[in-house]
Design a protein around this nucleic acid. Structure first.
Lengths: 128, 128, 128, 128
DNA sequence: GTGGTCTAGACCACG
DNA sequence: GTGGTCTAGACCACA
């Protein structure tokens, strides 16, 4: 799996990393039970500091997406068992600003929903 | 229009303010040509720093959503003329992480799209 | 409020700090709305590193016990509004090992419950 | 006796193992004089490292709960003779943080004490 | 070898 | 001046 960090971005590195791993899990690039590179290895690969990777991993653990075995590594959790639907309530808060901005910039509902569907389709493709 | 700032939130105040004004414009609470409170007034109303309001207004101007007349006020621009569809390319970058996280937490396509549609519906309602 | 860190302890410094602040809030030494020392100040006071304090504060925020105003400080949240009773399910997991060990070492139910009651009494005393 | 190790937990495996054996002794699943599986056997059963089991057993010996006969096995000590009440002084230190956190999260004295009593009751049940 | 903690010092965004 | 992020390098507990 290839990770791309934008060092000029405003979003913190650890968050970009976290997001990309979440996407990797979602889109099937990272399978359940698969082991992630060690914090040091990952840090070296990307060219960032160990602690930054550590922070990303810790957040992923807190969210239940990975399991950290102290002293032996980090693996992708089986999230298919998870049904933390409480996140559903947060979704509007997260997408409302995006939709608002999109609408102001002349993007209509159909265009927006198409983009969403495209993303979901690429999820299904990864699961095949 | 009522503005609600969550001081405990991780999103900076200036960004929350900007987002809420964008939403106000989108959802029809702020009509084109309408005047926004002065920087001072707005700062006092919400109980925040003048600089913070200034920053939000500046971003809105940069995005073309408001026009700042030095010394006489800030008014909502007529964005119906705007067709800055270049934002369409940014949309996937913004929603992909949200969809990925939602999917991992057991939310499916239908549920997600429903939330989007709800938001668009409340836009149309405001325009009536 | 006086904080005592045991540098020889196995429990991490940030956790000791977090625990003592939680206790401070519980026992009424830290009132709702009261401001905590800045990370740097607190670090200097105790003689530890800024980042260690930061970690403790971050955990407290995540648990909803304090509110962090980026750029202006950290204050004690009004936890009387909180009724996160889901913690009730975790309580047995936390005290079972303590009770088991106590029982093995000849401590009976009455003695143990008395200790608990003493602690609750000192909470009530602080609230007067 | 069935041992359940949570590999995702923050508590080290050796400590979970130790705790569960202590609980086994307390709740009557392990009787005095009963023999524990050998270090090798236990390690294999749970699927962990021998050293980890060894560490747990060593702690139990140090606390006087088991006796290790080199080469012939580990047996549960008769702790009914033990009256190491010095542990009574440590109890408040161990439960104070738990009570403090519980109180902050809206759990009152009665609820907390009930949980404790439940645990003691399950001890008595095991002793019948 | 792994992750976890702590320190030290730097820079930045926010208010 | 505040907290947030990142780096660098050290030591420790765990497996």
């Amino acid at each position: 799996m290839i990770l791309k960090i934008d060092f000029a971005s405003e979003t913190p590195i650890y968050e970009q990393l976290k997001n990309q791993i979440v996407e990797g899990i979602t889109f099937g690039l990272l399978k359940e039970g698969e082991q992630l590179p060690s914090v040091r290895q990952m840090a070296e690969d990307i060219g960032i500091n160990m602690h930054t990777v550590n922070k990303a991993y810790s957040i992923l653990r807190r969210e239940g997406l990975v399991i950290i075995y102290k002293g032996s590594g980090v693996i992708v959790n089986d999230f298919s068992k998870m049904r933390n639907k409480s996140f559903l309530k947060e979704v509007p808060l997260l997408i409302k600003p995006v939709i608002a901005e999109a609408y102001c910039k002349g993007i209509n509902e159909e265009e927006f929903l198409d983009k969403c569907k495209e993303i979901f389709n690429s999820i299904y493709k990864g699961k095949k």
